[in-house]
Write a protein that binds this DNA or RNA. Structure first.
Lengths: 339, 339
DNA sequence: TGTTAGCACTCCCCTGTGTTGAGTGCTAAA
DNA sequence: TTTAGCACTCAACACAGGGGAGTGCTAACA
């Protein structure tokens, strides 16, 4: 569709624009890239590329700027993939693996690293409870009528909750209940738990049984839904496209709405691998001059979460895609290996 | 020092400036506040107030703007304290009390509310481990060689850690150790724990004993230091003083350095009650056109943490101080009542 | 003695006007 | 098909000239 020279010109323009954020003129290309033709020729090519929609002109006497279509073509077929040096690769692996104290902290760390690597806003959606597997449930009677409920899920999630009861229970009662629940629940995916599975167990544990069932059904903490962790929001203030505070504010405010975020991220990454959503491909208005790069991460072969990066459409796609891939791989490795 | 009329003029100017963010002229004061004198008289008063340092003039034909000294006087003696309506009061109490699942979430909620009430950046320093009291320690052997360590501290902190051991231990061994540690540690403030207290207990538990001691000494999670939670960073982008991205970026970047933050907050609130640090009273350069309103919060009579709000010096001090007071009270109440 | 009306003055801010320069499209020659 | 040359466009910048908000000062007044 595009001949070789048009591709070269388009790539040169996008590379240059990504680097400088300034509209690119024909002379610049002729000088900096050795295409063996004069600026006039490039000018003709640029006119063609504009006509076919790959480039835009902010105004008639300015250089050219890539359109969404141009970026799309760049991402799909034009750009040179970036790969991190073994050193960087190792460092990310280690920093994520090093935080293997809890899933929550691993995820925090992943978000932090992703923001650092890309100098953009990073987002990580933590696995929803539904996708986790029951490993252990422990009830401990503390003093008087308070009971500590601890639930361990795979991978790496430990949830706690202190509850108070009206009645007092003996240590034996508590231990019995604990053991009974444990045997029933071990190895069950949270998704498969329902009121029925509990009713078999509770039997005559009365008040505390009731309370427990409710707590377990709502995931102990009441935060059953997927949590989103963001990092590096300040980074976008470094981008020239956000030198206008209003735009920065609009985007950041939109990102504070968790539901928005989730829908954006989840829609983006149905398929596997690193996905890119460019500018107007995005459904939300505020994101029309932003791009989103996402990937899913795994436990074994099961997708458990999504992570991604938001930045201006003029982002370093090669680098960002590599970073997203790297972090999602590292996270998957960590979660899969840790039993 | 300042006669009644000068006070009235100063208060009127600061009130007006806080509201509009525009330099205030003599005519505006004469018209809007019924001081019973003409603009010319007010003009004279304003000249005096400038000479004594309470006001400043951005340029000769502009109105007046409060100086740091002016704000200081306003905060100390001039302003009308704000008090929230019983309804708002109740709502905050409930929202904070409603989140009594864990200290961490209460603190998150407190930060969120504080940012919401003040439309500024809120900060909450969580209690450092040192200030917490040991309540319970539980070791549970999960499958194979992994052991779940759960530590309950007062108030409301539960920490978990999964550890892996080389050797295998019998359930009895684990339970024994758990019971022994528990008896020794219960009721002890974390600060008072030292290597010695453990050596009495570990005896011949070998490998796992060693690991446990290390873990306990570093607070199980490795995050022994005080954690800072921030909320509402985007709010400052609404303030006209941050219409320039550079300033917003500088402040937000400074706030991302935790140590900075801690030193700022801790220095601010040595004394009790709501404290205000205005503009250049602040030691850090980036904060020279910001003010900081802080208060401490308690468990019983012990200070365990600090919370505060950062905004432009032109902030609604009355409202912000009331909000900081309200939230710190609510948090103290929650932590004190919850045993 | 304090207050006020009046007035000249200052200086930001807005608007309009050149000027510059980067970049283009078109034409004609190679 | 490529390229040199040229006229043209238009954002960006600088600069000048009102307009207006606000001041300080002076003189009259209560």
């Amino acid at each position: 569709m595009l001949d070789e020279r048009k591709r070269q010109v388009l790539r040169a323009i996008i590379d240059s624009y990504i680097e400088t954020a300034e509209p690119v003129g024909s002379r610049t290309i002729a000088r900096r890239h050795d295409l063996g033709v004069s600026s006039a020729t490039i000018r003709n090519e640029m006119a063609d590329l504009e006509e076919t929609g790959y480039l835009q002109q902010p105004h008639v006497s300015a250089g050219r700027v890539p359109s969404d279509k141009g970026y799309r073509f760049y991402v799909d077929t034009l750009m040179e993939p970036h790969s991190f040096s073994p050193l960087e690769y190792l460092r990310v692996q280690q920093e994520i693996l090093g935080a293997q104290l809890s899933l929550e902290r691993s995820i925090h760390e992943a978000a932090r690293l992703l923001a650092l690597l890309t100098q953009s806003i990073s987002l990580v959606v933590a696995p929803g409870m539904d996708q986790l597997v029951f490993k252990h449930l422990q009830l401990v009677a503390l003093e008087d009528t308070s009971i500590l409920v601890t639930m361990v899920l795979h991978p790496g999630i430990v949830k706690n909750r202190l509850i108070r009861t009206e009645q007092e229970y003996s240590a034996e009662q508590i231990t019995d209940l604990s053991t009974a629940l444990n045997q029933k629940l071990k190895g069950v995916t949270y998704r498969d738990l329902g009121p029925t599975i509990f009713s078999e167990i509770i039997g005559d544990y009365g008040e505390i049984g009731q309370v427990l069932v409710e707590l377990l059904l709502q995931g102990l903490s009441g935060e059953k839904g997927e949590q989103v962790y963001a990092s590096g929001a300040v980074n976008i203030l470094n981008q020239p496209e956000f030198k206008d505070v209003e735009r920065a504010r609009a985007l950041l405010e939109a990102l504070e709405q968790k539901e928005h975020l989730l829908s954006v991220l989840n829609r983006a990454s149905r398929s596997s691998g690193v996905q890119v959503v460019i500018g107007h491909e995005n459904l939300h208005d505020v994101m029309h001059d932003c791009s989103l790069v996402t990937a899913t991460y795994y436990v074994g072969n099961d997708v458990v979460g999504t992570l991604g990066v938001i930045g201006p459409t003029r982002m370093d796609y090669a680098r960002v895609m590599a970073a997203v891939g790297l972090v999602s791989n590292s996270l998957s490795t960590l979660l899969t290996e840790q039993k």
